[in-house]
């Protein structure tokens, strides 16, 4: 669940991104209707085997699934109350296999490769007069400005603490939202000054 990357290279890193996504999609669709505990347990074992094939840096990733584990225990508990423990076990195994698979794709694929791989789904934007470049531009804007907003929140916290002695308050969210909007005005102006999100070449 935590998409910290496993440092490459490995055989999984070098597989084409679209192939990995396709395998993930197909295996999800195949696993979804399966209820047999033995088959599902085998699948979990196989996926763990895939992590193991990346060596210790792959197996370390499994440890990061702890928050997911709590959720699984909770679901198993709810099934136990309903008297459907067996269904509960197969559900937990199926979810574990699917989540581990999906996580494996994420941790062995760089974000920009992932973005390139899904770029074609934005091509239809052209039909309505949009630009398929815009989603990618929006993604980079988020990556660039999320830390900036955290920094703004930190400054607000300091100012709040300097006057109240208290550490933090939900009251700071309103000025944070305001500053985000004001800053977005400046950034939009700077983007327009450089030719805008459509670009100057008009060739896409």
């Amino acid at each position: 669940m935590i998409a910290a990357q496993i440092p490459g290279p490995s055989w999984l890193h070098s597989l084409p991104t679209r192939f990995k996504l396709l395998v993930l999609l197909v295996s999800g669709a195949v696993l979804f209707p399966v209820d047999d505990i033995l088959i599902l347990a085998t699948c979990v074992g196989l996926v763990i085997g895939l992590y193991a094939s990346l060596g210790s840096k792959g197996l370390v990733q499994l440890r990061l699934l702890r928050p997911f584990g709590f959720m699984m225990v909770f679901i198993l508990g709810l099934h136990a109350i309903s008297g459907t423990v067996e269904t509960g076990v197969s559900v937990v195994l199926r979810l574990t296999a699917m989540v581990l698979m999906a996580n494996l794709v994420s941790v062995t694929t760089r974000m920009d490769d992932m973005l390139d791989a899904v770029y074609p789904i934005f091509l239809p934007l052209k039909w309505i007069g949009g630009s398929p470049r815009k989603p990618a531009l929006a993604v980079t804007l988020v990556i660039r400005f999320a830390p900036v907003l955290l920094n703004v929140y930190g400054c607000l916290q300091d100012a709040f603490r300097a006057r109240t002695g208290r550490h933090s308050s939900w009251r700071l969210i309103a000025p944070l939202a305001l500053q985000a909007l004001k800053m977005s005005e400046n950034v939009a102006e700077a983007l327009t000054a450089r030719g805008g999100s459509k670009g100057l070449s008009n060739n896409d």
Binding site: M1, I2, A3, L24, L100, N103, M114, P135, V139
Partner: peptide
Amino acid sequence: LFLFLVALGAPLLAGGRGGLAVFAS
């Protein structure tokens, strides 16, 4: 857009979660 970033692998969900796994959970 936020969910798209999460799907691409950014660990932005509360608790630092992200990646395709959250869509299989």
